[in-house]
């Protein structure tokens, strides 16, 4: 299930503007990697290149290579749709489909890809995904209710359930807790701990305590100034990054001296 991500000298452009420059990184399977850094340093942009979601924005393109278990995502002839089935994503704001019930939201990835599931299998998949997303007990009696009738934290966990229902190898999370209260945040962090045993997880966060709580490794991104490209400054074990970073900029950032 879980796969290794290897990035070689990746540049990300919006039209001619170079947004992220020269990122090389290796992400181990069954681990949680946190991306930290000031706003606008390109960590979300970089995250979105890992499942070719950045292409949704017109004019965005990359040079370089991203390998997932040796398969280059940017080789000619790669279908981004197939990539995204293997690399799931959870967004900053919970975005359940408003026209679908809780159950249909979980099954959305399966149904929209025209996979026919017998009802029993569909029920099992819904239960398993919701249990994995720590949401089952809260919604099991109202699976037919609209997805948008849940609270913010529940909606975000519903989105995680939806993302894992298609059984991806990698789960990308773009600031999944930034719009949530501490209790929902805790629920999602617990969830990340549990999901680690099955998935490769990459999480972008602005919350450094969160990075220390959930991640095994941390990557620090920084930007030299507005209009300049973002760079990967340092990538190491989370404990090293937060206690004994090698680069001055990382130390300044994690100790709160800037950013």
């Amino acid at each position: 299930m879980s796969k290794r991500i290897e990035v070689n000298d990746l540049n990300v452009y919006y039209d001619k503007f170079l947004a992220v420059e020269g990122v090389s990184i290796e992400i181990e399977p069954r681990s949680v990697t946190a991306f930290i850094g000031p706003s606008g340093c390109g960590k979300s942009t970089f995250l979105r290149t890992l499942n070719r979601m950045h292409e949704v924005i017109p004019g965005a393109h990359v040079t370089g290579h991203v390998f997932i278990d040796g398969d280059d995502l940017y080789a000619p002839g790669v279908d981004p749709v197939l990539v995204r089935r293997e690399v799931g994503m959870v967004f900053q704001r919970a975005n359940p489909f408003p026209t679908m019930s809780v159950r249909d939201n979980v099954l959305a990835g399966v149904k929209l890809n025209n996979v026919r599931l017998p009802k029993r299998d569909a029920d099992d998949l819904v239960e398993k995904s919701l249990v994995n997303a720590n949401l089952w007990n809260e919604v099991k009696d109202r699976l037919g209710a609209p997805g948008s009738s849940l609270s913010g934290g529940q909606q975000q966990r519903l989105c995680i359930a939806r993302a894992i229902a298609v059984q991806p190898d990698v789960l990308l999370m773009d600031e999944p807790c930034s719009a949530l209260d501490p209790i929902s945040t805790l629920a999602i962090e617990d969830l990340i701990h549990e999901l680690k045993s099955e998935y490769t997880i990459v999480i972008v966060t602005h919350n450094m305590q969160q990075a220390t709580r959930v991640s095994d490794k941390t990557a620090f991104f920084n930007i030299a100034g507005t209009g300049k490209p973002g760079h990967l400054i340092e990538f190491d074990d989370t404990t090293t990054i937060f206690s004994n970073p090698k680069v001055k900029a990382t130390e300044d950032y994690v100790s709160g001296r800037f950013g």
């Binding site: 949704v56 749709v81 995204r84 089935r85 975005n95 959305a108």
Partner: peptide, 10 residues
Amino acid sequence: LREASYALGV
């Protein structure tokens, strides 16, 4: 919503 759908490989 479009992004959510694309991210599911739709």
